[in-house]
Deep mutational scan, measured.
Amino acid sequence: EAHAAIDTFTKYLDIDEDFATVLVEEGFSTLEELAYVPMKELLEIEGLDEPTVEALRERAKNALATIAQ
């Protein structure tokens, strides 16, 4: 499951495998979680700032909209 989540994140969020791995290690496994989890939870991840989190959430929401079509 972790590998599938990493693949999904790299494909749809335009991030590298290392960043995707950090997200999975922090407990995220779906685009929905990244799109809708409280921003505070993402900001608790070391190295993430508000602009990065906002961009990540926007990419996740856009990916979900694209997949739904």
Rank of each mutant, 00 (worst) to 15 (best):
residue 1 E to A: 12
residue 1 E to V: 13
residue 1 E to F: 03
residue 2 A to T: 13
residue 2 A to Y: 14
residue 3 H to L: 14
residue 3 H to G: 11
residue 3 H to E: 11
residue 3 H to W: 08
residue 4 A to R: 12
residue 4 A to V: 13
residue 5 A to V: 14
residue 5 A to R: 08
residue 5 A to K: 08
residue 6 I to D: 02
residue 6 I to N: 03
residue 6 I to Y: 04
residue 6 I to C: 05
residue 7 D to W: 03
residue 8 T to R: 14
residue 8 T to C: 10
residue 8 T to E: 10
residue 8 T to K: 12
residue 8 T to N: 12
residue 9 F to W: 02
residue 9 F to I: 04
residue 9 F to Q: 01
residue 9 F to L: 11
residue 10 T to M: 15
residue 10 T to F: 04
residue 10 T to D: 02
residue 11 K to L: 06
residue 12 Y to G: 02
residue 12 Y to E: 05
residue 12 Y to R: 00
residue 12 Y to D: 03
residue 13 L to F: 02
residue 13 L to K: 00
residue 13 L to V: 02
residue 14 D to E: 12
residue 14 D to Q: 08
residue 14 D to F: 08
residue 14 D to C: 09
residue 14 D to S: 08
residue 14 D to N: 11
residue 15 I to C: 03
residue 15 I to Y: 01
residue 16 D to K: 06
residue 16 D to Q: 07
residue 17 E to V: 15
residue 17 E to T: 10
residue 17 E to S: 12
residue 18 D to Q: 12
residue 18 D to Y: 13
residue 18 D to V: 13
residue 19 F to W: 08
residue 20 A to F: 02
residue 21 T to Y: 11
residue 21 T to W: 15
residue 22 V to W: 09
residue 22 V to Y: 10
residue 23 L to G: 00
residue 23 L to N: 00
residue 23 L to I: 04
residue 25 E to W: 06
residue 25 E to V: 10
residue 25 E to G: 11
residue 25 E to Q: 14
residue 25 E to N: 15
residue 26 E to S: 15
residue 26 E to Q: 15
residue 26 E to T: 14
residue 28 F to K: 01
residue 29 S to L: 15
residue 30 T to F: 05
residue 30 T to K: 07
residue 30 T to A: 06
residue 31 L to W: 01
residue 32 E to M: 09
residue 33 E to V: 05
residue 34 L to N: 00
residue 34 L to M: 06
residue 35 A to V: 15
residue 35 A to Q: 05
residue 35 A to E: 03
residue 36 Y to V: 11
residue 36 Y to D: 10
residue 37 V to P: 07
residue 37 V to H: 11
residue 38 P to R: 03
residue 38 P to F: 03
residue 39 M to I: 15
residue 39 M to L: 12
residue 40 K to M: 11
residue 40 K to E: 14
residue 40 K to D: 13
residue 40 K to S: 14
residue 41 E to F: 06
residue 42 L to I: 08
residue 43 L to C: 05
residue 43 L to K: 06
residue 43 L to Q: 06
residue 44 E to R: 14
residue 46 E to N: 12
residue 46 E to K: 14
residue 46 E to H: 14
residue 47 G to H: 06
residue 47 G to R: 08
residue 47 G to W: 12
residue 48 L to W: 07
residue 48 L to P: 03
residue 50 E to Y: 12
residue 50 E to Q: 12
residue 51 P to W: 11
residue 52 T to D: 07
residue 52 T to E: 07
residue 52 T to H: 07
residue 53 V to F: 08
residue 54 E to K: 13
residue 54 E to W: 02
residue 55 A to D: 11
residue 55 A to I: 11
residue 55 A to T: 10
residue 56 L to G: 00
residue 56 L to H: 00
residue 56 L to Y: 00
residue 56 L to W: 02
residue 57 R to K: 14
residue 57 R to T: 07
residue 57 R to S: 06
residue 57 R to E: 02
residue 58 E to C: 06
residue 58 E to F: 01
residue 58 E to D: 10
residue 58 E to M: 04
residue 58 E to T: 10
residue 58 E to R: 07
residue 59 R to N: 08
residue 59 R to I: 05
residue 59 R to T: 06
residue 60 A to W: 01
residue 60 A to V: 09
residue 61 K to M: 09
residue 61 K to N: 07
residue 61 K to P: 00
residue 62 N to Y: 05
residue 62 N to C: 09
residue 62 N to Q: 12
residue 62 N to T: 14
residue 63 A to K: 03
residue 63 A to M: 05
residue 63 A to D: 01
residue 63 A to H: 05
residue 64 L to K: 02
residue 64 L to F: 03
residue 65 A to C: 08
residue 66 T to M: 13
residue 67 I to H: 06
residue 67 I to Y: 01
residue 67 I to G: 07
residue 67 I to A: 07
residue 67 I to K: 06
residue 68 A to V: 09
residue 69 Q to Y: 00
